[in-house]
Design a protein around this nucleic acid. Structure first.
Lengths: 243, 243
DNA sequence: CCGAGGTTTGCGGGAACCCGCAAAAACACT
DNA sequence: AGTGTTTTTGCGGGTTCCCGCAAACCTCGG
């Protein structure tokens, strides 16, 4: 078994290494990487069947690393190991996992026991192991009522990137009114119906457009990492446009 | 010497404890807390002269903890120990540190050697020890040209909370035009002058209002934590208003 | 084939926002 | 007091945004 670990925090890295060595019997190769880019590089340099990824690393998110790894070799078993249950990450992962792939998602706050189980489950038994809390978020996102639809999510992304309505329309190939309509639905899902925003003597307190961003952030639907990545996508699109 | 450590991550907590015991000779009491609220509670329960705080903890940020601790006992020596150099945190700290207080700021990524030095420096020699990188950010924030002034920062906060112009005006006790003027200056500092935003066939690409949030986030001037805290402040103000 | 649910589009009005100009006011520093 | 910087304010016009209404459209399952 050939295992690659990517984790930027020194202590966590050492801890992972120790636990992995203790729990995995047929561990032949174990390599450590300190950030996402390095992980990719290492993955290309040798043969690995199993990977442990921290989300939230400098230079390249765990989600991005997983994406490129699975693109090269979909059979790779990946265990995500993260601090948070941010919806942004979870949405990102479920969107890129190949149908046949084996993966797991476990929180850093979990006791060492659970980590061992997850290691065995994913890398040896080839099961998908997903933390209870994470599972909860995942379900909510899949639910059409509570979570955002893919379209609404796109609108949210564009909104958070600071695009105008017209720019969104152009990017998503819909009419101006189409883009606005999507925003409307987004506002509704986030609880920004006209009646719901508090009113003072100064008039309505919130601007739907900006308030939506605020809510999305505080609910973890989006985070700074995800934004950086989307910013990159946007740049790509803009590059294609001006040709 | 009576030391209180607040840190939510298990591994880091253990590491801190070990290093502290090894480096600090006259260590009489050492207590651990797993989040901000607990830290305050513990601080009230016994006598401490020294504290190590993680920023980014559940329930209460390290910055908030420091604020209440210094309010009770300004002579307390505090060492901040964090993952990032986010401007939001640094700005928060420099705003609340009492003039006479001794404190330090060190990154988790620093080698153990530096941590030892910081412990000695802050708790024994009573010097202020601030990491090089952090220092850099601190300076930039103080600079009138690159960083945001206090007023502009306030405007940014209100903007990110999703307030309307009128609501900002009411909250900050200025005219409507006054609030807008502050926004204007903010846009300028962030590089959103009319000429600077790219234009496609669809017209200007960015909406200044939302783009400002996007930039602030990606530059770390503000983060989700800081926002949550400001959200609280806003709620307080709104409560006072409706009386 | 039809109907239900979701999505897109046009139209139109009212509100909010962006911003240039210019004068007053506040503040710091000498 | 005097000068310079920063901040506030009013005015006004052009733009963008928000959103209700209604019609077209698409897709999926009966």
């Amino acid at each position: 078994m050939h295992l690659l670990i990517a984790e930027d925090d020194k202590l966590h890295r050492a801890f992972l290494e120790k636990v992995a060595r203790n729990t995995l019997a047929d561990l032949n190769v174990l390599t450590m990487a300190e950030d996402g880019a390095e992980a990719i590089q290492e993955f290309d340099a040798a043969e690995y069947d199993s990977v442990i990824l921290d989300l939230q690393m400098p230079r390249m998110t765990g989600v991005e690393v997983a994406k490129t790894i699975w693109a090269k070799k979909p059979s790779t078993k990946i265990l995500f190991w993260s601090n948070y249950t941010e919806e942004a990450y979870i949405r990102g992962i479920t969107k890129i996992v190949p149908s046949a792939a084996v993966y797991g998602y476990i929180l850093k706050s979990a006791p060492a026991e659970q980590l061992k189980l997850a290691l065995q489950g994913v890398f040896v038994a080839e099961q998908c192991v997903i933390d209870r809390e994470v599972r909860g978020v995942q379900q909510r996102a899949g639910d059409r009522l509570l979570g955002l639809s893919e379209l609404e999510y796109e609108a949210l992304v564009d909104l958070c990137l600071g695009l105008t309505d017209k720019a969104m329309a152009a990017r998503r190939n819909v009419s101006l009114r189409g883009a606005q309509s999507r925003l409307q639905h987004l506002y509704q899902k986030l609880g920004l119906d006209k009646g719901d925003i508090p009113v003072g003597e100064w008039g309505p307190t919130y601007n739907s457009r900006t308030r939506a961003i605020s809510l999305a952030l505080s609910q973890g639907i989006l985070n700074a990492d995800a934004l950086r990545k989307e910013e990159e996508n946007l740049r790509v699109w803009m590059g294609r446009q001006q040709k």
